[in-house]
Design a protein around this nucleic acid. Structure first.
Lengths: 126, 126
DNA sequence: CTTACTAATGCAACTAAGTTGCAATAAGAA
DNA sequence: TTCTTATTGCAACTTAGTTGCATTAGTAAG
């Protein structure tokens, strides 16, 4: 499933994420793109890009939504290819961590997915 | 460190959490206590109870803040006694999970704490 | 018990993230 | 080029959470 129309604004967002390796908050994206498009458009394109499996999102420590490259949707097999995220408490930068998440089994609970956020210092802030 | 004044409103919130084993969102708490106190008061007491180590908080899947019993502050030794949380996608109930969190070591990153949220179905919703 | 200090509260107004309805625009298929 | 409809911009809205300030009420000291 891909995005149905390759509009100017979609291209801009795709280009931005093409060279961006960090997870960006929607607030940052709206600000970065404020000259190019309306904030509503940013929200809506991000939503579509996530549905299309081009981006994935998570909620950071402050409750803000962040988006990063890559797919994290639930597959037809019910599995979810997922990974933890990191947030630097000094500079606020956030990245995907190349780790597998092991889901614990707990009596009485059926765990289907998880969100893991690690907090600390990134390389540049040590 | 404990709360400095044992006011009527503080007592009410402590009593509520005394019999509550789940993590409640601030929105729910404001609603539950709307007859007894102002929403600003709810926010402020929750903040103080967290600082005092009586409650701890986390951000749920929707970016809403939730509070539950117990301490999760960073201790003087720099260690943080922390655990994952569970959120039932059917009924919305949220609980603390009695599991230890193992912090991975990743080159170039210093990890100081983590937030882990497991999503799925609780006992009553299976 | 009374006084005095000040933490805590209520209220109203505010900020900020995210959403919605709708008319106008522009992909892109035919 | 035409036509359909997905997409956009805009304004107005919703909701979580915060702030300033005047008033109230714990509580320690006398």
């Amino acid at each position: 499933m891909s995005i149905s129309r390759n509009t100017k604004t979609v291209k801009l967002l795709l280009k931005l994420f093409d060279k961006e390796n960090n997870a960006l908050s929607v607030v940052d994206l709206v600000s970065i793109l404020s000259q190019e498009m309306n904030k509503t458009t940013v929200y809506r394109i991000l939503q579509r890009l996530e549905e299309a499996g081009i981006l994935h999102s998570f909620i950071d420590k402050d409750g803000l939504k962040r988006y990063a490259k890559g797919d994290q949707r639930t597959s037809s097999s019910g599995n979810q290819i997922t990974h933890p995220h990191f947030l630097c408490e000094e500079c606020g930068i956030s990245t995907c961590l190349p780790l597998k998440i092991s889901t614990p089994s707990i009596p009485n609970y059926i765990i289907k997915s998880s969100e893991q956020l690690y907090l600390g210092q990134c390389k540049d802030c040590q």
